[in-house]
């Protein structure tokens, strides 16, 4: 509580200076109601709702409207939709194996949501839904719980062989098992923090550079830096979606084939 009030006073002080540097790099992540400004409850329509809805609309636009022509020779949008389909399908097939293809729609859902949320977040004034831990943790937990339950349903207690490294010497196996279990349990954390952290950091850095643009002397450098960071963020937006998806495939492979 004390820290919060101190922060508030600090911010006030920063604004009070007037004309000085004003950094609010984290303000872009504030969740606020779309209509009016009451408190945010569970079902309140917020900027989260708006940008997730836009992501859903983009997915529908690409995957449904884009393929409505059903052309043997695809148009532009249909090519992209087919490319996305083929990209994720091949990833699932290559990483998780043939029996992983059954779970392709779930992985496709994750990939498309993340990739569109990431790219929409790059629009100026946009709200990046995937920069929030609340969002990525739900995504990562869904994957974690999903593959863990799937592993136990498919293999029963033999799923625990995943932690028992049978190729290691007998003495080392218990130690390795502990390490394996810890690394397994840490998966949802790394899985979610990687995505949210990357996006949050990139967007915050852009905002910091934007703050420097207020100083005439450094503003050209600042604008150049923003441009460069933006280019990097475009890359990050795709790469993080890709990493999230391919890790999901890897986890799925562990659930389907737990034997080392």
């Amino acid at each position: 509580m004390a820290e919060n009030t101190a922060g508030a006073h600090g911010a006030e002080a920063a604004q009070g200076e007037g004309g000085g540097l004003v950094f609010h790099p984290m303000d872009q992540f504030i969740v606020k109601p779309l209509f009016g400004d009451g408190a945010v409850h569970m079902f309140t329509v917020t900027n989260v709702t708006l940008w997730m809805a836009l992501a859903v609309l983009c997915v529908i636009g690409l995957m449904v409207l884009g393929t409505s022509g059903r052309g043997i020779v695809p148009g532009r949008l249909q090519s992209v939709a087919e490319l996305a389909y083929g990209f994720v399908y091949k990833m699932v097939e290559d990483v998780s194996g043939k029996d992983g293809v059954k779970y392709f729609p779930y992985i496709m859902t994750l990939f498309l949501f993340i990739v569109f949320a990431n790219f929409l977040g790059l629009l100026p004034m946009a709200f990046t839904t995937t920069s929030h831990f609340a969002v990525t943790v739900v995504l990562a937990l869904a994957v974690f719980l999903g593959v863990t339950i799937l592993g136990f349903v498919k293999h029963g207690t033999r799923f625990l062989e995943l932690f028992w490294v049978s190729s290691a010497p007998m003495v080392l196996r218990p130690v390795l098992a502990i390490i394996e279990v810890i690394s397994y349990l840490i998966r949802p954390v790394s899985h979610s923090v990687r995505l949210a952290g990357n996006l949050m950091a990139g967007h915050a850095v852009i905002k910091v550079f934007a703050g420097f643009a207020a100083i005439a002397a450094v503003s050209p450098v600042s604008v150049l830096a923003i441009t460069a960071m933006y280019g990097l963020e475009v890359l990050v937006a795709f790469i993080q979606a890709y990493i999230f998806t391919i890790l999901t495939c890897v986890y799925l492979k562990d659930a389907l084939h737990p034997h080392h």
Partner: peptide, 21 residues
């Protein structure tokens, strides 16, 4: 109107985000 700390760690918004997600 500016954020206090990291908005990502704000508990007030979690369930809203989870719901819409």
């Amino acid at each position: 109107g500016s954020a206090i700390g990291m908005p990502q760690l704000c508990g007030d918004w979690v369930w809203n985000q989870v719901f819409w997600l």
